[in-house]
Design a protein around this nucleic acid. Sequence first.
DNA 1: TTGAAAGCGCTACCAT
DNA 2: ATGGTAGCGCTTTCAA
Lengths: 332, 332
Amino acid sequence: MSVKNARLQEVARAAGVSYITAWRALNDPDLVSEKTRAKVSRAVEDTGYLPNAVARSLVSASSGVIGAIVPTLEDSIFADTIQGVADVLHSAGQELLVGLSSYDSRREAELIRAFMGRQIDGLILTGRNHEADVQRLLKSGRAAVVEVWDYGEPAIDMLVGFSNTEMARAVTAFLCTKGYRHIAFVTVSGRRRGRERLAGYRKELAARNLSIDPALEITCAPTLSGGGDALDHLMALDRPPDAIFFNGDTIAIGAHLRGRAKGLTYPADVALVGVHDLEIARHVDPPLTSVRIPRYRIGEQAAKLLLARGQGKSDAPEKQNLGFEIVERGTT
Amino acid sequence: MSVKNARLQEVARAAGVSYITAWRALNDPDLVSEKTRAKVSRAVEDTGYLPNAVARSLVSASSGVIGAIVPTLEDSIFADTIQGVADVLHSAGQELLVGLSSYDSRREAELIRAFMGRQIDGLILTGRNHEADVQRLLKSGRAAVVEVWDYGEPAIDMLVGFSNTEMARAVTAFLCTKGYRHIAFVTVSGRRRGRERLAGYRKELAARNLSIDPALEITCAPTLSGGGDALDHLMALDRPPDAIFFNGDTIAIGAHLRGRAKGLTYPADVALVGVHDLEIARHVDPPLTSVRIPRYRIGEQAAKLLLARGQGKSDAPEKQNLGFEIVERGTT
DNA sequence: TTGAAAGCGCTACCAT
DNA sequence: ATGGTAGCGCTTTCAA
């Protein structure tokens, strides 16, 4: 059963040509006569030869592999980004090594080291917060690095995303403009991005001289139920919010459905905003106001930057702020 | 900026020991004196040495990498399986190469060849339908293979999943038992799994002497809107169905929301069943009857089989039927 | 406990 | 148009 792969040497023997000729027939066919080429490709068929990309990587010091590290694939958010990366890499014949950090920067660091040891050509990292130990490695230039999802300073090298702080400010400003004054902010526990957005929310309230009420800043589980629970909690306060900014559509939709079941009306009883603009946001009743984030494009662009860098097209650090868009619907 | 990685030779020099001693200090530390070990690990620090896993793979003929090919990450279905795979592999220090086939078996074949050329230790494939050209390669034993998601015959080697045909039969039988007699089946266009399930649905209807009405077998887009459109279409028929079996919760939920907006009542006007038991199924009103599929566990088990095979723990083909469970809720 | 050297399969540079 | 060979960085076998 377990058969060792034929090497190019075997192919050459089977074709009755020298090793180097067989090599050229495959890698530089113009330098080889028609007849020889035919013999070699028959021999390839017969032997079931498949080039050993590991040996190639060793000598060429470039692996044709890109690494991408995201926190999780369990919500579709980062999965969409990975899909974008994979689609671009496929067209360039590059492979994709995926690492899941579970929002743990130590685990991320392990993955970075493991990937670097495999001579990856490029690395895509989620966020700009990485363990101190790996900073030197990341900046060593052994692999091109793109940080994604969080546009800001400082960056290791290339950067593709949008500003979380700006986004949270913009949403808060939007709600204020609509007349809401007592705005809650709900985030998923233990995630850094939530903290950055919280800062934006606070900044905007401060800029408008609105008070920051700690009772309105809460966390919940990253599920529909979690969002529902957050809504229950907030609406039971002595002074419930008139608007709730959910840091994610999943929890926003969870709240929406829970509230509807309890007889709440949006936005009369309370206004709701989510983030990500998942398809479901358009399909609940009333549809959910949300923020469109270019999840797939972030991945696409990151991969394109890596490919361009690989071809030496650019050596200057590239930074792309892809922005976001508030999509106003019935819940506000 | 771009600095070449230190080789073990440099480390040895910096530590003032021979190459092989440095090697042993890192890979077989018991064979080396305490003092030497300390010197070497200091030298590793100083040089920023990171072992070259590519060179290791070349000589050891084993890469420490597993490949997994799924159709897409765009619905969370396969993303959950990948997450399961990654979680298991992480604990074993193996890396994960991900390939997305877009439901295209030629693209899958390309990915298989590319992955095999990289000397992967194991390969996880979605489904049992693979291009003829790669069958030989898959059976060559160069990498351990697990097919996932579709339990049945024949299999290349190992197998983890559940029977699509049985699942569709069981759902159809469940609906018949509840008294429904005019059951529609909605599947997403162009996906093989849908066809297998269609066969199960037909088989069960035939077994009960219920007529198979081609007008009730339709396809739709893989979105909430697609499901809504399917509902509209079916309910506008001269003789609309009394129950609809949606091959996926996304389209089922889309139909559910569309129907509610039009004033339909479930199950009085029509019964709905989905597949996958996404969290949202429990949160719509009335909650959606669905089929629980062990998506994450499929990935976990597949990875575990691969690891066990790698350690030579088993060489017999392993097949695991993880089953499914109909979760009855308010829409039936 | 330490050392020397062959070789994994390929690419690239030297030839003829 | 075809051929020989050094060497990528590591693991492993044989020796001391």
